[in-house]
């Protein structure tokens, strides 16, 4: 009697068949999974296991004691942050500085990439690109000292304005809060605009040249090609970076604030990260710092999901 060939029989429909299909797929891709195992383990060990530290935000942690054995604080640290006199300023500064960075810093590399993409002389294009990348490699410490030299009370700009008779007293650009947001936005832009073009330029390089040929035949000029071919060609990249940018809207910077800001501009420079550092790490109130950081992270995740959902509905493009 022949042995029935069970494995070749059609699988029953429903959830069981779905699970079996998954098992089959897993078995088929087992080599890939084996290779991925170390990375999965890496992510679990280094990205998920340390998350137990989030607990710190809900207890009164004291260094030397374990988090588990610390006294339970519930939401007290979150409440303390919300009730603190700095809360309004810190949240406002974070949102404004990030908002300005997105408003100015997001389109700027797209425009620069479009312009660079239009350059015909390869050598010139390379030189311009390289020069535009360079500021990215300059540390914020150096940028801060450049700013002090340029914008200080005795800096170059004040010197020029005084000599030209435009002002009779130096303007304290770095000592007056009203200038801080502009200075930090301009510094971020100067530092990163070139570097951020890389991803757009590579996306533009991927646009099929035949589409440009077809556009030419249809009478498109360079501006028209840019608008109707290049930009739509890189739209998925733009959307992807925009969603990620929204997720990072609460990452308004850290070292630039600490280096360029000072006591006179504190009302305009203090952002969530610098606040968490000062009151969490420097004061040794780790639970308070953890609560502030966690609050920021939760809002960030919420913003990413929201931006992704909006993008999916409006532009039919999303990252997950």
């Amino acid at each position: 009697m022949d042995k029935p060939v069970v494995e070749h029989l059609p699988l029953p429909a429903g959830p069981v068949s779905k699970w079996a299909r998954r098992k089959k797929t897993l078995y088929r891709e087992r080599n890939l999974w084996f290779i991925s195992l170390p990375l999965i383990a890496w992510v679990i060990i280094f990205n998920y296991v340390p998350m137990y530290g989030i607990m710190m935000a809900f207890v009164d942690y004291v260094p030397g004691k374990s988090i588990i054995s610390s006294d339970w604080a519930g939401l007290r640290h979150f409440k303390a942050f919300i009730d603190s006199p700095d809360f309004g300023n810190v949240v406002r500064n974070t949102l404004v500085i990030s908002g300005l960075n997105i408003l100015v810093g997001f389109p700027a590399p797209i425009v620069l990439a479009l312009l660079l993409n239009e350059l015909r002389k390869k050598r010139f294009k390379q030189v311009v690109q390289t020069i535009s990348y360079l500021p990215h490699f300059i540390s914020w410490v150096v940028v801060a000292s450049i700013l002090f030299t340029l914008l200080g009370n005795e800096g170059i700009l004040n010197d020029i304005l005084l000599r030209l008779g435009i002002i009779d007293q130096p303007i304290s650009y770095l000592g007056e809060g009203k200038y801080f947001w502009g200075i930090i936005t301009a510094s971020n832009l100067w530092k990163d605009v070139g570097w951020s073009t890389i991803i757009y330029l590579s996306a533009m390089a991927g646009v099929d040249s035949e589409v440009y040929e077809a556009g030419k035949v249809d009478g498109l000029g360079r501006m028209g090609a840019m608008w109707h071919i290049t930009l739509p060609g890189v739209r998925p990249t733009i959307v992807l970076l925009w969603i990620l940018g929204i997720g990072g809207i609460l990452n308004a910077g850290f070292e630039q604030q600490l280096l360029i800001g000072n006591s006179q501009t504190r009302e305009y420079y203090e952002v969530i990260d610098t606040y968490a550092y000062k009151y969490g790490i420097q004061l040794g109130n780790y639970s308070y710092g953890a609560a502030v950081g966690l609050m920021k992270a939760v809002i960030g995740v919420f913003l990413v999901f929201s931006a992704n959902r909006i993008s999916k509905k409006v532009l039919d493009t999303s990252i997950f």
């Binding site: 603190s84 006199p85 700095d86 304290s172 000592g175 006591s263 504190r266 009151y279 004061l283 109130n285």
Partner: peptide, 26 residues
């Protein structure tokens, strides 16, 4: 004492004092 929440308040007060006194002086 560092473990007293008043220590956080004290630091906030000191930072605000420096900023706001600078404003009054200038």
């Amino acid at each position: 004492p560092g473990n007293d929440l008043l220590a956080v308040t004290n630091t906030q007060i000191e930072e605000m004092l420096e900023t706001l006194w600078a404003k009054a002086v200038t």
